[in-house]
């Protein structure tokens, strides 16, 4: 790129550039969400901050549109906007797909409900009801009485055996960003996790460290 053209780019003080730390955080959250078998906590504050910064910068880019001298600057900033918007959408979409997949187990388990944002929880409930009605209308209402429950195979089942639950013992790629001390793998096996260590291991022993952000899934 011609350096003389690029000069206006570094000066971004007039606009409101999205705080780059938040972008990193959201990228990490999206990666974690993509790789973890269960639904993770919704990063409300990061999403809110980025959303705010994005709207501000979108307005700023729009204001630049009339000024032809600022064309390059406008293009660079609008590309940045697109990337942030893509990231936000990717994050929302990844979560939504998981929520649909595990809707039944989320509705049944309060521990998961706390991890969803308000609108996600609403969506989850509505989706579960919709799917339940559909299954009843198409199949369950035509079955003998003993076999009608939605979440159980028969009325005699001792637990909800038709609910799809996240498989917490699947293996994931883990990277430690912090010294986490020892992690208990099972009764007699302990793993020392130090910074920058890489593991391929079961998700479950690491779940609490993913939640605190001491390790990340890659």
């Amino acid at each position: 790129m011609d350096p003389s053209q690029a000069t206006p780019v570094p000066d971004e003080s007039a606009s409101a550039p999205p705080p780059s730390g938040d972008i990193e955080l959201l990228i990490q959250a999206t990666l974690n969400e993509k790789n973890a078998p269960e639904i993770l906590e919704f990063k409300q504050d990061v999403v809110d901050r980025l959303q705010g910064a994005l709207s501000a910068q979108e307005e700023y880019v729009e204001a630049l549109e009339s000024d032809m001298c600022q064309e390059l600057r406008r293009m660079v900033l609008s590309l940045e906007n697109k990337r942030v918007r893509y990231l936000l959408k990717l994050y929302h979409r990844t979560r939504l797909q998981k929520i649909e997949k595990f809707a039944a187990s989320i509705v049944a388990d309060e521990q998961y409900q706390d991890r969803l944002s308000e609108s996600e929880m609403q969506y989850c409930r509505d989706y579960f009801v919709l799917l339940g009605r559909h299954f009843h209308g198409m199949v369950l209402d035509h079955l003998p009485d003993d076999f009608r429950p939605l979440v159980k195979l028969t009325k005699l089942s001792t637990h909800d055996d038709l609910i799809l639950r996240p498989k917490l013992n699947t293996h994931v790629f883990v990277k430690a960003v912090d010294n986490c001390g020892s992690v208990l793998l099972n009764e007699d096996l302990v793993l020392d996790v130090t910074q920058n260590d890489l593991f391929i291991m079961r998700y479950e022993p690491m779940a609490h460290l993913v939640r605190t952000g001491q390790v990340v899934l890659i």
Binding site: K82, H92, Y123
Partner: peptide
Amino acid sequence: GIGHDLTLD
């Protein structure tokens, strides 16, 4: 809702 059309991008 969230104000994004997730089916795009």
